[in-house]
């Protein structure tokens, strides 16, 4: 007796199991993607975007028009910020980048610029500044390890104002969350 020679039906059954599993895993991936890219519409000051759903919508401060962060994230909550800054004619994105950089250097701990360059983001010219800083709870009684946060600013010049789109994420999550941020950038209209 030999049970090693599997029948044709047996082989088909084996393949269908794999096929069903692959289909399920692909559907699971779609499920993951749809949850992670779930968006809500944002509109303020003539600027629209799709921002991640399920994130905390913080009160915009100063020239911010959007400040949203993923509060359920362990460590530093991934944050998107949109700032709208009025400008005079002829001001360049690089100038705004320098201004933002100085402001950040003053307000953030261990702030360092990693890279700055001119880029094209979904067809728009922008100035990109990548940087890191350390986020620690200002409460001295809060016994916790500070987070290393990586940030990137995209500065767009649009007529009489500049728009700065900012992405902050814990260093370890930065790359993983970048795709989501690019979706946000893609949805941005102004």
């Amino acid at each position: 007796m030999s049970t090693r020679n599997s029948s044709l039906g047996d082989r088909f059954a084996e393949i269908t199991v794999i096929a069903v599993t692959v289909v399920a895993l692909l559907a699971g991936w779609a499920c993951k993607t749809s949850v992670e890219t779930r968006s809500i519409a944002f509109e303020a000051d003539g600027i629209t975007a799709q921002t991640p759903a399920g994130w905390l919508q913080a009160e915009p401060a100063g020239d911010e028009i959007l400040h949203t962060n993923d509060f359920s994230n362990a460590g530093f909550g991934t944050t998107y910020i949109l700032r709208k800054m009025p400008l005079a004619e002829g001001t360049t994105a690089a100038q705004i980048a320098s201004l933002l950089t100085l402001e950040r250097a003053q307000n953030l701990t261990a702030f360092r610029v990693l890279e700055q360059r001119e880029v094209t983001v979904y067809g728009r010219t922008a100035y990109e500044v990548t940087y890191v800083f350390v986020e620690s709870n200002p409460d001295l009684t809060h016994a916790d390890i500070p987070s290393v946060v990586r940030g990137v600013d995209y500065i767009f010049i649009n007529g009489d104002h500049a728009l700065a789109a900012t992405y902050w994420a814990e260093e370890n999550d930065f790359e993983m969350g970048l795709g989501r941020f690019h979706l946000f950038l893609e949805s941005l209209t102004f």
Partner: peptide, 13 residues
């Protein structure tokens, strides 16, 4: 699924 083309392209200065 991770390997999308980067949407951010550097331009020349």
């Amino acid at each position: 699924c991770y390997g999308n083309n980067p949407p951010v392209q550097p331009t020349t200065p």
